[in-house]
Nucleic acid binder design. Structure first.
Length: 242
DNA sequence: TATAATGTTTGAAC
DNA sequence: AGTTCAAACATTAT
């Protein structure tokens, strides 16, 4: 689940702010009992993190590859289930973690590509500080720089800016660094827009596709970067900066 | 039906 | 000591 999907979840989840948890269950190994009788004071997202905030701590939910949730409905084997006087909030196949402190002391909104406070210059500065041989495909997935960007956004954004995923960050000119940072955010918002109208896959140009619409030739499909992730690119129009 | 994957952490092995 | 790698988690679309 990538950043834009978390923003959509956040919109649905906001209704639980101010509500008290009256029953907790689920197969999480964390100390979930701690949540009983607690009042949700805020709900936040940062990148791929979904955060339910309480007075002195937060519950961080990460959906990884297959995580899901249900609001006011349920399915089998919740990892965590929160019940309220009116309604319930259920999470499945996700990673659950307690974080002490408040949101602002733990998270920097300026590195979240979906945030109003996204700071493009900060991302560019961070890119320049990466080790010499860092690849563009890895940089985009680096959650400390582009929180919320996942493999779909990575592939689509690189195709749009005609940049080869195995380009070296250190070989990019200032203009290209800017373009990279900009498109990470721009595509994320397109992702959000399309996901909301259930048209996300319809707009994929490269991810899980075969033919480059610009060049009319077959895409390359290769495991790139470290850790290796399946990457789609057009070897004709995506320039490799080396 | 088999395959591959919207992701990250952990810890063993080298 | 730093890196590399597999395992773990477990679902769903193609």
């Amino acid at each position: 689940m990538e950043g834009p999907s978390l923003v959509i979840l956040h919109e649905e989840a906001k209704a639980f702010i101010g509500k008290k948890i009256i029953k907790v269950s689920g197969n999480t190994k964390t100390e979930k009992e701690r949540l009983l009788n607690q009042k949700i004071i805020d709900i936040k997202t940062w990148g791929k993190h979904f955060l339910i905030c309480f007075k002195d701590f937060m519950v961080r939910i990460h959906f990884l590859m297959y995580g899901s949730y249900r609001i006011n409905e349920q399915k089998e084997n919740p990892r965590l289930s929160l019940k309220f006087k009116n309604g319930e909030f259920n999470f499945y196949n996700c990673s659950i973690k307690f974080i002490e402190g408040d949101f602002y002391s733990q998270y920097d909104e300026e590195t979240d590509v979906m945030s109003d406070r996204w700071n493009e210059k900060k991302a560019i500065t961070a890119l320049k500080k990466l080790p010499k041989k860092s690849l563009v495909c890895d940089a985009l997935l680096n959650q400390n720089i582009f929180a919320g960007v996942g493999n779909i956004i990575k592939n689509e954004a690189l195709w749009r800016i005609k940049m080869h995923p195995e380009s070296f960050i250190s070989s990019l000119k200032p203009k290209q660094l800017k373009q990279l940072a900009q498109e990470a955010r721009t595509y994320s918002f397109d992702f959000y827009k399309w996901k909301k109208i259930y048209e996300l896959k319809k707009h994929w140009v490269i991810y899980r596709k075969q033919i480059c619409p610009r060049c009319n030739i077959k895409y390359t499909r290769k495991y790139c970067g470290n850790p290796a992730r399946l990457t789609y690119f057009c070897s004709n129009c995506q320039v490799k900066y080396k």
